[in-house]
Design a protein around this nucleic acid. Structure first.
Lengths: 165, 165
DNA sequence: GTAATTTAGTTGTAGCTTCAAGTAATGACT
DNA sequence: AGTCATTACTTGAAGCTACAACTAAATTAC
Protein backbone atom coordinates (compact mmCIF):
# COMPACT_ATOMS: atom_id res chain seq x y z
CA UNK A 1 0.00 0.00 0.00
CA UNK A 2 2.60 2.44 1.09
CA UNK A 3 5.19 1.39 -1.41
CA UNK A 4 4.21 1.62 -4.96
CA UNK A 5 8.01 1.66 -5.37
CA UNK A 6 9.42 3.34 -2.26
CA UNK A 7 9.67 7.13 -2.33
CA UNK A 8 13.29 7.66 -3.33
CA UNK A 9 14.22 4.39 -5.07
CA UNK A 10 15.77 1.83 -2.70
CA UNK A 11 19.27 0.46 -3.17
CA UNK A 12 20.10 -2.19 -5.76
CA UNK A 13 21.84 -5.38 -4.65
CA UNK A 14 25.22 -4.04 -5.78
CA UNK A 15 24.63 -0.75 -4.07
CA UNK A 16 23.55 -2.49 -0.91
CA UNK A 17 26.72 -4.59 -0.87
CA UNK A 18 28.85 -1.49 -1.33
CA UNK A 19 26.86 0.38 1.27
CA UNK A 20 27.24 -2.29 3.92
CA UNK A 21 30.96 -2.52 3.28
CA UNK A 22 31.33 1.25 3.47
CA UNK A 23 29.25 1.54 6.61
CA UNK A 24 31.12 -1.13 8.49
CA UNK A 25 34.43 0.28 7.36
CA UNK A 26 33.64 3.79 8.55
CA UNK A 27 32.38 2.30 11.80
CA UNK A 28 35.42 0.15 12.56
CA UNK A 29 38.40 1.85 10.96
CA UNK A 30 38.64 4.91 13.22
CA UNK A 31 38.62 2.80 16.36
CA UNK A 32 41.17 0.41 14.95
CA UNK A 33 43.53 3.29 14.20
CA UNK A 34 42.81 4.92 17.52
CA UNK A 35 43.71 2.02 19.77
CA UNK A 36 47.46 1.85 19.18
CA UNK A 37 47.88 5.61 19.60
CA UNK A 38 45.74 5.55 22.69
CA UNK A 39 47.81 2.83 24.26
CA UNK A 40 51.14 4.31 23.28
CA UNK A 41 50.52 7.93 24.15
CA UNK A 42 46.94 8.55 25.25
CA UNK A 43 46.31 10.34 21.98
CA UNK A 44 43.26 9.83 19.80
CA UNK A 45 43.53 9.52 16.03
CA UNK A 46 42.13 13.01 15.82
CA UNK A 47 44.71 14.35 18.29
CA UNK A 48 47.43 12.74 16.24
CA UNK A 49 46.10 14.29 13.10
CA UNK A 50 46.01 17.73 14.61
CA UNK A 51 49.65 17.43 15.57
CA UNK A 52 50.55 15.91 12.22
CA UNK A 53 48.87 18.67 10.22
CA UNK A 54 50.59 21.32 12.30
CA UNK A 55 53.94 19.62 11.97
CA UNK A 56 53.64 19.65 8.19
CA UNK A 57 52.61 23.30 8.04
CA UNK A 58 55.03 26.15 7.42
CA UNK A 59 56.64 27.16 10.74
CA UNK A 60 54.54 24.48 12.45
CA UNK A 61 51.64 26.89 12.74
CA UNK A 62 48.13 27.23 11.34
CA UNK A 63 45.10 29.37 12.13
CA UNK A 64 42.43 27.39 13.94
CA UNK A 65 40.07 27.61 10.96
CA UNK A 66 42.61 26.25 8.56
CA UNK A 67 43.55 23.49 10.99
CA UNK A 68 39.89 22.63 11.39
CA UNK A 69 39.56 22.38 7.62
CA UNK A 70 42.61 20.14 7.30
CA UNK A 71 41.40 17.81 10.02
CA UNK A 72 37.80 17.84 8.74
CA UNK A 73 36.59 19.02 12.10
CA UNK A 74 34.26 21.68 13.40
CA UNK A 75 35.88 24.69 14.98
CA UNK A 76 34.19 23.74 18.21
CA UNK A 77 35.66 20.28 18.26
CA UNK A 78 39.07 21.58 17.41
CA UNK A 79 38.88 24.26 20.06
CA UNK A 80 38.19 21.71 22.79
CA UNK A 81 41.01 19.48 21.58
CA UNK A 82 43.47 22.34 21.18
CA UNK A 83 42.76 23.33 24.75
CA UNK A 84 43.51 19.81 25.92
CA UNK A 85 46.68 19.51 23.85
CA UNK A 86 47.79 22.92 25.06
CA UNK A 87 47.29 21.79 28.65
CA UNK A 88 49.53 18.83 27.85
CA UNK A 89 52.16 21.14 26.44
CA UNK A 90 51.98 19.71 22.92
CA UNK A 91 50.46 22.75 21.27
CA UNK A 92 50.50 26.49 21.89
CA UNK A 93 48.04 29.15 20.82
CA UNK A 94 48.55 32.86 20.16
CA UNK A 95 46.31 35.50 18.71
CA UNK A 96 47.42 36.59 15.28
CA UNK A 97 49.20 39.93 15.05
CA UNK A 98 47.27 41.64 12.27
CA UNK A 99 43.84 40.13 12.91
CA UNK A 100 43.03 39.63 16.56
CA UNK A 101 40.16 37.31 15.73
CA UNK A 102 42.38 34.54 14.51
CA UNK A 103 44.20 32.21 16.85
CA UNK A 104 47.35 30.62 15.51
CA UNK A 105 47.97 27.12 16.81
CA UNK A 106 51.49 25.67 16.77
CA UNK A 107 53.09 22.37 17.70
CA UNK A 108 55.59 22.80 20.49
CA UNK A 109 58.94 21.02 20.50
CA UNK A 110 57.45 18.47 22.84
CA UNK A 111 54.57 17.93 20.43
CA UNK A 112 56.99 17.60 17.56
CA UNK A 113 59.02 15.05 19.46
CA UNK A 114 55.90 13.10 20.27
CA UNK A 115 54.59 12.73 16.72
CA UNK A 116 58.01 11.89 15.45
CA UNK A 117 58.11 9.17 18.03
CA UNK A 118 54.61 7.96 17.19
CA UNK A 119 54.79 8.22 13.42
CA UNK A 120 56.34 4.80 12.80
CA UNK A 121 53.73 3.12 14.97
CA UNK A 122 50.89 4.95 13.29
CA UNK A 123 52.16 4.34 9.78
CA UNK A 124 52.47 0.69 10.67
CA UNK A 125 48.78 0.56 11.66
CA UNK A 126 47.70 2.37 8.51
CA UNK A 127 49.76 0.02 6.45
CA UNK A 128 48.60 -3.17 8.10
CA UNK A 129 44.95 -2.17 8.22
CA UNK A 130 44.71 -0.51 4.85
CA UNK A 131 47.52 -0.79 2.36
CA UNK A 132 48.63 -4.31 3.11
CA UNK A 133 45.08 -5.33 2.17
CA UNK A 134 45.09 -3.51 -1.16
CA UNK A 135 46.91 -3.82 -4.46
CA UNK A 136 47.96 -0.89 -6.63
CA UNK A 137 44.70 -0.84 -8.54
CA UNK A 138 42.71 -0.80 -5.30
CA UNK A 139 44.72 2.16 -4.07
CA UNK A 140 44.02 4.14 -7.21
CA UNK A 141 40.33 3.23 -7.08
CA UNK A 142 40.12 4.13 -3.42
CA UNK A 143 41.62 7.55 -4.02
CA UNK A 144 39.22 8.18 -6.90
CA UNK A 145 36.16 7.05 -4.98
CA UNK A 146 37.18 8.83 -1.81
CA UNK A 147 37.50 12.09 -3.67
CA UNK A 148 34.12 11.64 -5.29
CA UNK A 149 32.53 11.05 -1.91
CA UNK A 150 34.21 14.12 -0.50
CA UNK A 151 32.77 16.14 -3.36
CA UNK A 152 29.31 15.11 -2.29
CA UNK A 153 29.86 16.09 1.30
CA UNK A 154 31.96 19.19 0.96
CA UNK A 155 32.75 20.44 -2.50
CA UNK A 156 35.21 22.98 -1.11
CA UNK A 157 37.21 20.58 1.01
CA UNK A 158 40.95 21.22 0.88
CA UNK A 159 41.63 17.67 -0.25
CA UNK A 160 39.88 18.42 -3.53
CA UNK A 161 41.86 21.52 -4.30
CA UNK A 162 45.07 20.36 -5.91
CA UNK A 163 44.28 17.89 -8.72
CA UNK A 164 47.74 16.39 -8.11
CA UNK A 165 50.47 17.38 -10.57
CA UNK B 1 65.79 15.80 2.72
CA UNK B 2 62.37 15.23 4.08
CA UNK B 3 62.34 11.53 3.42
CA UNK B 4 65.43 9.91 4.76
CA UNK B 5 63.56 6.59 4.79
CA UNK B 6 61.67 6.40 8.10
CA UNK B 7 61.46 3.12 10.02
CA UNK B 8 58.52 1.25 8.48
CA UNK B 9 58.40 2.57 4.93
CA UNK B 10 56.31 5.73 4.67
CA UNK B 11 53.40 6.05 2.27
CA UNK B 12 53.93 6.59 -1.43
CA UNK B 13 52.30 9.58 -3.10
CA UNK B 14 49.46 7.43 -4.39
CA UNK B 15 48.96 5.81 -1.04
CA UNK B 16 49.00 9.16 0.67
CA UNK B 17 46.32 10.50 -1.65
CA UNK B 18 44.16 7.45 -1.01
CA UNK B 19 44.82 7.66 2.70
CA UNK B 20 43.80 11.31 2.97
CA UNK B 21 40.65 10.66 1.01
CA UNK B 22 39.78 7.67 3.16
CA UNK B 23 40.51 9.48 6.39
CA UNK B 24 38.40 12.50 5.57
CA UNK B 25 35.60 10.31 4.30
CA UNK B 26 35.48 8.24 7.47
CA UNK B 27 35.60 11.45 9.47
CA UNK B 28 32.79 13.25 7.68
CA UNK B 29 30.42 10.60 6.38
CA UNK B 30 28.99 9.37 9.70
CA UNK B 31 28.13 12.88 10.81
CA UNK B 32 26.58 13.71 7.46
CA UNK B 33 24.33 10.67 7.69
CA UNK B 34 23.57 11.34 11.32
CA UNK B 35 22.30 14.86 11.01
CA UNK B 36 19.06 14.23 9.07
CA UNK B 37 18.05 11.38 11.39
CA UNK B 38 18.89 13.44 14.40
CA UNK B 39 16.76 16.32 13.24
CA UNK B 40 13.86 14.18 12.11
CA UNK B 41 13.66 11.80 15.05
CA UNK B 42 16.49 12.33 17.53
CA UNK B 43 18.04 9.09 16.40
CA UNK B 44 21.71 8.60 15.64
CA UNK B 45 22.88 6.67 12.60
CA UNK B 46 23.81 3.88 14.95
CA UNK B 47 20.36 3.90 16.57
CA UNK B 48 18.81 3.75 13.13
CA UNK B 49 21.00 0.84 12.19
CA UNK B 50 20.08 -1.09 15.29
CA UNK B 51 16.42 -0.71 14.45
CA UNK B 52 17.01 -1.49 10.79
CA UNK B 53 18.94 -4.68 11.51
CA UNK B 54 16.25 -5.85 13.90
CA UNK B 55 13.49 -5.03 11.45
CA UNK B 56 15.15 -7.17 8.80
CA UNK B 57 15.65 -10.12 11.12
CA UNK B 58 13.27 -13.05 11.40
CA UNK B 59 10.44 -12.14 13.79
CA UNK B 60 12.11 -8.75 14.32
CA UNK B 61 14.38 -10.25 16.96
CA UNK B 62 18.07 -10.93 17.43
CA UNK B 63 20.29 -11.88 20.35
CA UNK B 64 22.37 -8.94 21.57
CA UNK B 65 25.62 -10.56 20.39
CA UNK B 66 24.34 -11.10 16.91
CA UNK B 67 22.94 -7.59 16.79
CA UNK B 68 26.28 -6.23 17.96
CA UNK B 69 28.00 -8.14 15.16
CA UNK B 70 25.59 -6.82 12.55
CA UNK B 71 26.02 -3.25 13.68
CA UNK B 72 29.82 -3.61 14.08
CA UNK B 73 29.53 -2.52 17.68
CA UNK B 74 30.84 -3.71 21.00
CA UNK B 75 28.37 -5.41 23.26
CA UNK B 76 28.87 -2.61 25.73
CA UNK B 77 27.96 0.08 23.27
CA UNK B 78 24.96 -1.86 22.09
CA UNK B 79 23.80 -2.49 25.63
CA UNK B 80 23.75 1.22 26.44
CA UNK B 81 21.92 2.02 23.24
CA UNK B 82 19.42 -0.81 23.65
CA UNK B 83 18.63 0.51 27.11
CA UNK B 84 17.97 3.94 25.70
CA UNK B 85 15.85 2.66 22.82
CA UNK B 86 13.92 0.45 25.23
CA UNK B 87 13.22 3.48 27.42
CA UNK B 88 11.83 5.17 24.31
CA UNK B 89 9.63 2.19 23.60
CA UNK B 90 11.26 1.37 20.28
CA UNK B 91 12.88 -1.87 21.35
CA UNK B 92 12.11 -4.56 23.92
CA UNK B 93 14.42 -7.07 25.54
CA UNK B 94 13.68 -10.52 26.95
CA UNK B 95 15.94 -13.25 28.19
CA UNK B 96 15.99 -16.22 25.88
CA UNK B 97 13.95 -19.27 26.92
CA UNK B 98 16.50 -22.04 26.54
CA UNK B 99 19.65 -20.09 27.43
CA UNK B 100 19.18 -17.52 30.13
CA UNK B 101 22.46 -15.81 29.28
CA UNK B 102 21.21 -14.48 26.00
CA UNK B 103 19.01 -11.43 25.76
CA UNK B 104 16.81 -11.23 22.71
CA UNK B 105 16.23 -7.71 21.44
CA UNK B 106 13.18 -6.93 19.31
CA UNK B 107 11.81 -3.89 17.53
CA UNK B 108 8.44 -2.93 18.89
CA UNK B 109 5.57 -1.86 16.66
CA UNK B 110 6.41 1.73 17.50
CA UNK B 111 10.01 1.10 16.50
CA UNK B 112 8.88 -0.54 13.30
CA UNK B 113 6.64 2.38 12.49
CA UNK B 114 9.48 4.79 13.13
CA UNK B 115 12.02 3.19 10.81
CA UNK B 116 9.45 2.78 8.12
CA UNK B 117 8.76 6.45 8.44
CA UNK B 118 12.45 7.32 8.45
CA UNK B 119 13.64 4.94 5.75
CA UNK B 120 12.87 7.18 2.78
CA UNK B 121 14.70 10.07 4.37
CA UNK B 122 17.70 7.96 5.23
CA UNK B 123 17.89 6.30 1.85
CA UNK B 124 17.74 9.72 0.31
CA UNK B 125 20.81 10.82 2.32
CA UNK B 126 22.72 7.67 1.44
CA UNK B 127 21.85 8.17 -2.18
CA UNK B 128 22.73 11.82 -2.37
CA UNK B 129 25.92 11.51 -0.35
CA UNK B 130 27.17 8.26 -1.77
CA UNK B 131 25.54 6.74 -4.82
CA UNK B 132 24.69 9.89 -6.68
CA UNK B 133 28.41 10.59 -6.65
CA UNK B 134 29.40 7.21 -8.06
CA UNK B 135 28.98 5.36 -11.32
CA UNK B 136 28.46 1.60 -11.63
CA UNK B 137 32.16 0.85 -11.78
CA UNK B 138 32.80 2.92 -8.66
CA UNK B 139 30.12 0.99 -6.81
CA UNK B 140 31.69 -2.35 -7.71
CA UNK B 141 35.16 -1.07 -6.78
CA UNK B 142 33.88 0.31 -3.50
CA UNK B 143 32.31 -3.00 -2.53
CA UNK B 144 35.48 -4.86 -3.41
CA UNK B 145 37.75 -2.47 -1.50
CA UNK B 146 35.42 -2.23 1.46
CA UNK B 147 35.41 -5.99 1.85
CA UNK B 148 39.18 -6.13 1.64
CA UNK B 149 39.47 -3.52 4.37
CA UNK B 150 37.02 -5.41 6.52
CA UNK B 151 39.14 -8.52 6.12
CA UNK B 152 42.09 -6.65 7.59
CA UNK B 153 40.11 -5.46 10.59
CA UNK B 154 37.91 -8.42 11.33
CA UNK B 155 38.29 -11.51 9.22
CA UNK B 156 35.18 -13.06 10.76
CA UNK B 157 32.86 -10.12 10.22
CA UNK B 158 29.39 -11.18 9.11
CA UNK B 159 29.61 -9.03 6.01
CA UNK B 160 32.32 -11.32 4.68
CA UNK B 161 30.38 -14.50 5.20
CA UNK B 162 28.00 -14.94 2.30
CA UNK B 163 29.67 -14.29 -1.06
CA UNK B 164 26.16 -13.53 -2.32
CA UNK B 165 23.85 -16.51 -3.07
C1' DG C 1 28.79 -33.31 41.40
C1' DT C 2 31.42 -29.50 41.89
C1' DA C 3 35.21 -26.34 40.79
C1' DA C 4 37.13 -23.74 36.93
C1' DT C 5 36.37 -21.60 32.61
C1' DT C 6 33.89 -19.51 29.10
C1' DT C 7 30.04 -17.02 27.25
C1' DA C 8 26.58 -13.26 27.29
C1' DG C 9 25.46 -9.25 28.84
C1' DT C 10 25.23 -5.03 32.07
C1' DT C 11 26.94 -1.04 34.46
C1' DG C 12 29.92 2.95 36.10
C1' DT C 13 32.77 6.38 34.69
C1' DA C 14 35.98 9.26 32.29
C1' DG C 15 36.64 11.54 28.24
C1' DC C 16 35.13 13.04 23.69
C1' DT C 17 31.71 15.16 20.37
C1' DT C 18 27.93 17.94 19.21
C1' DC C 19 24.89 21.65 19.61
C1' DA C 20 23.40 26.06 21.02
C1' DA C 21 24.79 30.18 22.78
C1' DG C 22 28.09 33.69 23.64
C1' DT C 23 32.24 36.98 22.92
C1' DA C 24 35.11 39.86 20.54
C1' DA C 25 37.26 41.77 16.45
C1' DT C 26 36.64 43.20 11.68
C1' DG C 27 34.32 44.86 7.54
C1' DA C 28 30.39 47.04 5.16
C1' DC C 29 27.06 50.57 4.82
C1' DT C 30 25.39 54.97 5.41
C1' DA D 1 31.25 57.99 13.44
C1' DG D 2 27.78 54.61 14.36
C1' DT D 3 24.97 50.73 13.37
C1' DC D 4 24.64 46.05 11.33
C1' DA D 5 26.47 41.84 9.78
C1' DT D 6 30.13 38.61 9.46
C1' DT D 7 34.10 36.07 10.86
C1' DA D 8 36.78 33.51 14.14
C1' DC D 9 36.72 31.50 17.66
C1' DT D 10 35.36 29.77 22.89
C1' DT D 11 32.46 27.76 26.26
C1' DG D 12 28.88 24.84 28.88
C1' DA D 13 26.03 21.24 28.97
C1' DA D 14 23.90 17.08 27.20
C1' DG D 15 24.57 12.86 25.23
C1' DC D 16 27.48 9.16 23.31
C1' DT D 17 31.47 5.84 23.40
C1' DA D 18 35.24 3.15 25.18
C1' DC D 19 37.31 0.75 28.87
C1' DA D 20 37.39 -1.86 32.85
C1' DA D 21 35.01 -4.22 36.24
C1' DC D 22 31.26 -6.99 37.39
C1' DT D 23 27.19 -10.56 37.43
C1' DA D 24 25.11 -14.64 36.19
C1' DA D 25 24.28 -18.67 33.36
C1' DA D 26 26.09 -22.52 30.88
C1' DT D 27 30.14 -25.73 29.69
C1' DT D 28 33.98 -28.26 30.52
C1' DA D 29 37.07 -30.86 33.30
C1' DC D 30 38.03 -33.51 36.86
Amino acid sequence: MRDSVPGPRWLSADERAAWLALLSTTTLLPGALDAPLQKAAKLSLFDYNVLAMLSEAGNRTLPMSELAARTSASLSRLSHVAKKLEARGLVSRDTHASDARVTAASVTDAGMALIEELAPLHVASVRSLVFDQLDARDVADLARIGRKLMRGMDAGHWILRDPAP
